[in-house]
Amino acid sequence: MFLYVLLRLTVVVLAMVLIGLVVVVGTDRLRRSRRDVRRRARAIAPAAAVLVVVLSTNSVARRVVPDGSHIVGIRATFGVDATWWIYELEGGFLPWLQSFETAALTAYFSFIYVYGYVFLLVFPVLAYLALPDTRPVRELLVAYSLNYALGLLCYLLVIAYGPRNVMPELVDALMYDAYPRYQHLTRQVNRNTNVFPSLHTSLAVTVALVAYRTRETYPLWYPIAAVLGLSVAVSTMYLGIHWAIDVVAGAVLAAVSVALAARLVGRFSPGELLGRFSVEGLLGRLSLRERLER
């Protein structure tokens, strides 16, 4: 079941990405960038490596951290059991949002939550790779890493269950009841206490913010990313998966991540970093030292 769902996801997203590349990026750009693939790959390698490390530790950490932190007492000492606090603060908002429920909206938001979201994350990486300037793609990748890393820290400290877990009768878990198979997918990647902040929202908003920064290069992408990003944010609430507070926190996390990424990418250019740790760099410093000693 899980494999079938995964396969379907891959095929659909692949189709969306291909269409996006042709429409947004254009065949000219794609053709030209083929010659420059190596240089660009080398330029983004550090940022991509960081993301791979963060993602691989993240998937383990999301499962292990809740148990582990209980043992070490981190949660007992610093953690906040926030579910009831959030419920009392905004309990009425989601039922209100869901009062607009229609079959079409449920279908739309379910599609956005699963397919739209994955497309939103994958497409800009490829689109920015088609640019001679590698800075946008590096910023994006670093921002992704920051989202995951900071998000995990929040999960460690804030223990909260989502609205569908507290108000099952009011907040229908619309997607899971309309399309039960999706839960096989999301169950594989998450724990039900990891709701604050909404990483769906933060990553989607991150993409939209970076799209805003590159709006002159890709004028068509910015509005698409904005609409999709907003839809993802709303979908997490409409589907009863996140509280409004999680979504707000997700947007804040996105802003912080993008701002930090812009600074970090400017400061440590990968070329310099590579140089510093490369063989020639080390030799260079060694020889300098030798000279000083003489």
Binding site: A173, P180, H184
Partner: peptide, 8 residues
């Protein structure tokens, strides 16, 4: 994960 998917 849920009764609905069990029924399915």
């Amino acid at each position: 994960p849920r009764s609905t998917s069990a029924i399915e």
